[in-house]
Simulated assay, not measured.
Amino acid sequence: MPRILPQFARWTPAALEVLRETAGRYGSTITTYALADEVTTRTGIDSPTQRRTWIGDLVEMTALAAERAGDPPLASLCVGRDGTVGEGYVRIVAATTGDVVSDAEARAAEDRLACYRALARDLPSDGGSVEHLQRRRTSRSTPARAPRGAGGTIRSSSTTATKAKAEPRKIAVCQSCYTALPATGVCDYCD
């Protein structure tokens, strides 16, 4: 379960906006640090702690908000400096879909393609493919650029995803500020 910071109320909608913009360009990704920088710039709200202490939680909260909004799996567009999603993406997939993922990178590549198919303005006429994204990546000397100059890569391999035996615990989220609700069901920040 992600740690909830008061700033997330403003950062989550901004992160959704940035990730939707990133998905609007076929093949684009954004690094977690670039996402953090963009979110704090757009909201004008900085954090008293280092990005590495909260960015994973923000990406997870944003993934939950995207799922509730009916967006494709936008968190798949958020990569580390090495262009991979890492094991944190396994937790995000489990929280949003209940799937158990054995290959986070392959699942993220498939999920990114779903994002591009839903939101890209420059989608190839054939709808694109994971393989096509990989070829595009390796044929360029520089990675695809995301909003405001953040870059990343696309990785691909096979995946095995199955439904988890136990349903993941659903986190109740405030519809106004996207923070996790306490057991009372009343938002501490909005009410």
Results as ranks from 00 to 15, higher is better:
R3T: 08
A9Q: 02
R10K: 11
A14I: 00
A14V: 02
A15W: 05
L16P: 15
V18Y: 08
V18M: 14
V18G: 12
E21C: 12
A23N: 05
R25W: 01
G27Q: 10
Y33W: 01
D37M: 09
D37P: 11
E38D: 14
V39R: 07
T53I: 07
T53P: 15
W54G: 15
G56F: 04
D57R: 07
L58I: 08
E60F: 01
M61Q: 10
T62Q: 08
A63V: 07
A65K: 12
E67C: 15
D71E: 11
P73S: 12
P73C: 08
P73V: 07
A75W: 03
S76D: 08
L77R: 07
C78Y: 02
V79L: 12
G80D: 04
G83P: 12
V85R: 08
G88T: 07
R91W: 05
I92P: 11
A95C: 09
A95G: 14
T96N: 09
V100I: 13
D103R: 11
E105P: 12
A108P: 15
E110Y: 00
L113Q: 10
L113G: 13
C115W: 00
R117H: 03
L119V: 01
R121C: 15
P124Q: 10
D126Q: 04
D126T: 02
D126C: 04
G128W: 00
V130G: 14
V130L: 05
H132F: 00
L133H: 07
Q134V: 04
Q134M: 02
S139E: 04
S139C: 00
S139T: 00
S141F: 01
P143F: 04
P143K: 06
R145P: 07
G152A: 01
S157P: 09
T162D: 13
I171H: 06
V173Y: 07
V173K: 14
V173D: 10
C177Y: 05
L181T: 03
L181Q: 02
A183E: 12
G185Q: 11
G185D: 06
V186S: 07
C187W: 05
C187P: 07
D188M: 14
D188Y: 09
